[in-house]
């Protein structure tokens, strides 16, 4: 019984700490996490978009694979990693030495969430179109994803 209580306490403590650890993710780790997710999004969206715009020949298998991977990676929700203190790179940090995040992410959280929700919706439509196998719908949905990307970048990326 005593051992059980000890084990339970340790477990509770570990669970509690992991929650705390997540909430207190270091700014540089948060910046790296969101940039990594966005980079992988771009890697998957690239061929989808290029096929939609007929820059490269349409290949259904590659299109579908990339569209479904995009849906999975987007489900990681990069917006979770815009934690307080990650609006600027950490001074002297070797990793995550820059961020293009605009201050409005923190000053207009509702608008930011709406932009994220819009992208989630468009990526969902793209994945659905990919599953349906309708080439025309796939290409059109890819265009709408690109527009949602742009809308959010226009509002929440720093001006370069």
């Amino acid at each position: 019984m005593k051992n059980f209580v000890k084990f339970g306490t340790a477990l509770a403590l570990a669970a509690g700490m992991s929650t705390i650890a997540y909430a207190q993710i270091k700014p540089e780790d948060a910046i790296r996490a969101r940039q990594s997710i966005m980079r992988v999004n771009a890697i998957n969206f690239g061929p989808v978009s290029a096929m939609a715009q007929e820059k490269i020949p349409f290949n259904k298998d590659i299109f579908v694979a990339n569209a479904l991977r995009l849906e999975s990676v987007w489900a990681m929700n990069p917006t979770r990693f815009f934690v307080p203190g990650s609006d600027k790179p950490v001074a002297g940090a070797r990793i995550a030495a820059f961020t293009d995040a605009n201050g409005e992410i923190w000053s207009q959280p509702e608008k930011f969430k709406a932009a994220y929700d819009k992208e989630t919706q468009e990526i969902g439509k793209l994945a659905a179109a990919a599953r349906s196998g309708d080439e025309k719908a796939m290409k059109a949905a890819a265009g709408d994803v690109g527009k949602a990307c742009k809308a959010c970048h226009d509002d929440f990326q720093v001006k370069k």
Binding site: S49, A50, H153
Partner: peptide, 26 residues
């Protein structure tokens, strides 16, 4: 554009310089 469009000569320069030129383009 950090999405899926790159100018045809993007490949010859750094991302840093491309970002700068994109800013000047805008």
């Amino acid at each position: 554009d950090d999405i899926s469009t790159e100018g045809p000569l993007y490949r010859y320069i750094s991302k840093n310089l491309s970002d700068k030129l994109t800013g000047w383009h805008k």
